Simulated assay, not measured.
Amino acid sequence: MPKNTKSDPFFSFANLDNDEIQLATGALLIAQSEYPEINIEDYLRQLDEMADVVRERIQGATLPEQHISELNRYLFEEKSFTGNIDNYYALGNNFLNVVLKKKTGIPITLGVVYIEVGRRAGLPLVGVNFPSHFLVKYQREHLDILLDVFENGMFMDEDRLRAKLQANFGEDIPLERSMLAETTDKEILARILRNLTRAYTLLEQYDKALTTAERITWLLPEAAGDYRTLGYLYYKNHAYSESITAFETYLQLAGETPDTAAVEQNIQQLQKLLSRLN
């Protein structure tokens, strides 16, 4: 059933302005749903301590390549963070506390570690929602350096980006500039939550999937497609009125789409179901 939003600390967090959002705090709040015993401050302190080391090492270095090299050396060689190739789809890869403990994860959670350590050390790092593979960007005026933290901070030129698209989709998809745009921290957190929504749905843990789906709409209330998912998950949790509302919100935000008729039919069927129940 739908949660009382006021009782979920993520609700007030999600309603902060973008410039007030702390990426690591949000990722740990997400993890706290699965691991309620974790102390968020302990993990934030761990990120601070790693950043202290990096900050000291880049003192006096002026070139971006030097900054990136030191951060890569520290995280991937000394601290041994690595991509979880062998168990890529393990649920724990989506939780920052697990990634910090096991030092392995998927592109987006390794990206959160990389961004948060780098930012704390004073480096201009942002996320990039590249299709099917999260990237990190070192971004200064007139300078963008794209990095694949799943590959130990490898520099991503256009050839590597095209190869990544080919590997992910198995067809010749053109590389577009929009794929390389900076993403907000809210969008990064929403991408983690979408991963979890899919994972919980596949596990038929629909109550947990509903929680993650609701949180996406708190972060990004104008993202149409997430309301369609939310409508389905309300239905699976027998919250039929809320399901109708979510589907209606999807139609309002999305406008005319190829699935408009199907969603309208879902709404009609739910209305009939509610009338029988009442």
Rank of each mutant, 00 (worst) to 15 (best):
E34T: 14
R73C: 08
L16S: 14
K164A: 12
P258V: 06
V128F: 07
T212A: 03
Q205I: 00
N195H: 05
G105Q: 01
L193C: 02
I192F: 03
L63P: 09
L28W: 03
N195A: 03
L270T: 12
Y89A: 11
V126E: 08
A254S: 11
E49L: 15
V99S: 04
N94L: 02
A181M: 09
V128K: 04
E182H: 11
L175Q: 10
E264S: 12
G255P: 02
T245D: 12
F95Y: 11
L233P: 01
L180M: 11
S69D: 10
L29V: 07
S241L: 06
V113H: 02
G225D: 10
I21T: 13
A51P: 06
P174H: 09
A213P: 06
N72H: 04
E141Q: 12
P174T: 12
L273M: 15
Q139G: 11
P221N: 06
A224Q: 02
Q139S: 15
M1T: 10
L28Q: 06
N4G: 00
T257M: 13
V54L: 08
Y206T: 01
A239I: 00
R160V: 03
G170I: 01
P258Q: 09
T104P: 00
I58N: 04
L63K: 15
L203E: 11
M1A: 12
